[in-house]
Design a protein around this nucleic acid. Sequence first.
DNA 1: TGTACATCAGTGAACGCGCGTTCACTGATGTAC
DNA 2: TGTACATCAGTGAACGCGCGTTCACTGATGTAC
Lengths: 205, 205
Amino acid sequence: MAKRGYHHGNLRQALVEAALQLIEAKGPTGFTLSEAAKTAGVTPAAVYRHFEGREDLIAEAARQGYEVFADLMEYAFAKGQPSALASFEATGRAYLAFARKYPGHYVAMFESGISINRRPELAQVAGRAMGVLEMAAAELSKHIDPAHRPPAQMVSAHIWAMCHGVVELFARGSPGTKSPFPPEDLLETGIGIYLRGLGLIPPDR
Amino acid sequence: MAKRGYHHGNLRQALVEAALQLIEAKGPTGFTLSEAAKTAGVTPAAVYRHFEGREDLIAEAARQGYEVFADLMEYAFAKGQPSALASFEATGRAYLAFARKYPGHYVAMFESGISINRRPELAQVAGRAMGVLEMAAAELSKHIDPAHRPPAQMVSAHIWAMCHGVVELFARGSPGTKSPFPPEDLLETGIGIYLRGLGLIPPDR
DNA sequence: TGTACATCAGTGAACGCGCGTTCACTGATGTAC
DNA sequence: TGTACATCAGTGAACGCGCGTTCACTGATGTAC
């Protein structure tokens, strides 16, 4: 992908990809606009033709991440159908898979400190992603005895918290916090126990 | 606490406290050594009489956080005794309470990117904190039918992940990720369902 | 098809800034006698 | 108790650096006729 002459061709996307790569490598702190520009083979000033500034570039990276994220979750949910349980578990696994496969996006989305309300499209696509998880939880809730049924939003919040916690604590090269278990197993067993607690899996298997 | 003359008296601790305050206010990114020095009423250069540099100052803030954290967890654990279940639940709640009460410490510990192996004392005290949770999980495990008993370390990892996830996603002024439930409730119900899944709480209560 | 011209997407130099860190220094404190 | 002196804990000036951002510019591209 050698720079052909004066014009880059698709600088905007190249900058986003450079940003993602740098964010993954150095964290949201270490990421600089200047370095992203250099990585894309361009002067820092050129960035301003496509973005309002540093923050805006990060926001776009996060937006694209949410887009992929929401798609993955939707796909996982659909694939598990018509079993609500399978859908739900697949959605949880998709969460971790996303964090693993797109670490740059994940950091931009959840650790960069970007406000989700910065741009309307960002808020919208983030809502779509969360919506899938809530939908999965709602489907699941139908199978629970209404007397002991927690709100679907609460169930999705629990699962989201567990997923996020596993990612942050165990799936990253995190500060010394290693566990003897692979994150995938940790999440799978954790969700399994939780679902059993909801009465959706028989007590002993 | 007006500066009395040339010598500060207890600059080292004053710097740590300034750092914590700034980290809480601006995140680990926004924190600067220079500003911490100014907050403590001192020249940036003075910091070097007490710390090796910026990172070292953050590490000390994190260390003090782990100290308090471990104490709180130990206290909660002891208070719940002799009931393993009560101890375990109290320990979980203590986690969230710590994050709420000492947000600067929490960020320094878990979001500053500081390596736990930076200094031996840091690793040691962090180990102590994790040890309490593992101990609580081990106590709890004794009451589970051995045939269906997950390793205690796994249980503590699950709970830690859930706690951390709740803190990061719902207990902070986080990016748009609000939930209609208070974090305390979210954690309490989440742990409750999980424990039910372990067979430690009767299916309906 | 060729030409004139508007628009677009870059350059590169410059800016002011605050950062972390160093250095020789100096004022305050503690200690030996 | 007084004095000389070593040690300690600060100062303040200076540094080099890379940052984000701006500006007038220019080379490349697209379009109208």
